[in-house]
Simulated scan of single mutants.
Amino acid sequence: MKINGSSREHFILVGFSEYPKAEFILSLFASSFYTMTLTGNAAIILVSLLDSRLHTPMYFFLRNLSFLDMCFTTCVVPQMLANMWGSSKISYIGCMVQFSVTLAFGSTECVLLAVMAIDRYVAICWPLRYTMIMHRQACYIFAAISWTWGFSNSLVQSSLAMALPLCGHRRVDHFFCEILIIVKLSCVDTHPTESKMLVVRLIIVIIPVSIILTSYACITRAVVGMKSAEGRKKAFGTCASHLVVVSLFYGTVMFMYLQPKNKYSQHQGKALALVYTIVAPTMNPVIYTLRNKHVKRAIKKVVWKDSL
Rank of each mutant, 00 (worst) to 15 (best):
192 P>M: 08
136 R>I: 04
2 K>I: 11
79 Q>Y: 13
134 M>E: 14
167 C>V: 03
252 T>C: 14
209 V>D: 00
165 P>I: 03
66 S>E: 06
9 E>M: 12
237 G>H: 07
73 T>S: 10
96 M>R: 15
235 A>P: 05
232 R>T: 01
274 L>A: 12
189 D>E: 05
105 F>R: 01
251 G>E: 07
283 M>W: 08
162 M>P: 00
258 L>R: 03
241 S>W: 05
8 R>L: 14
197 M>C: 00
14 V>K: 12
246 V>A: 10
74 T>A: 11
95 C>H: 04
171 R>G: 05
240 A>D: 07
55 H>G: 07
40 G>T: 06
106 G>E: 08
45 I>W: 07
153 N>E: 05
177 C>G: 08
44 I>G: 05
136 R>S: 14
96 M>W: 15
77 V>A: 07
183 V>F: 11
164 L>F: 07
205 V>N: 11
272 L>N: 09
307 S>F: 09
291 R>W: 13
63 R>M: 04
66 S>L: 04
130 Y>Q: 13
214 T>Y: 13
271 A>G: 08
54 L>Q: 13
37 T>K: 05
269 G>I: 04
184 K>N: 14
277 T>P: 04
294 H>C: 06
128 L>P: 00
67 F>Y: 09
89 K>D: 11
63 R>T: 00
238 T>P: 04
236 F>C: 10
36 M>C: 13
178 E>Q: 09
70 M>S: 03
99 F>R: 05
191 H>M: 11
77 V>C: 01
205 V>M: 14
202 L>A: 11
39 T>K: 09
157 Q>W: 03
302 V>N: 09
148 T>H: 02
218 C>R: 14
71 C>T: 01
59 Y>R: 01
94 G>W: 07
303 V>D: 03
254 M>C: 15
255 F>M: 14
79 Q>H: 11
238 T>L: 01
138 A>M: 15
38 L>F: 07
211 I>C: 10
79 Q>P: 01
42 A>P: 02
154 S>A: 08
110 C>M: 08
156 V>K: 06
187 C>G: 05
175 F>G: 05
305 K>W: 10
175 F>S: 00
32 S>L: 13
34 Y>F: 15
78 P>Q: 03
131 T>G: 12
222 A>I: 00
262 N>R: 12
197 M>P: 12
295 V>E: 02
138 A>V: 14
129 R>W: 10
306 D>Q: 14
240 A>V: 15
48 S>P: 08
37 T>R: 01
45 I>N: 07
189 D>R: 04
119 D>A: 06
167 C>G: 06
112 L>V: 06
126 W>H: 15
217 A>G: 07
69 D>T: 03
169 H>S: 10
33 F>W: 10
80 M>R: 10
11 F>A: 04
216 Y>F: 12
122 V>T: 04
180 L>C: 08
186 S>T: 06
186 S>Y: 11
205 V>I: 09
149 W>D: 01
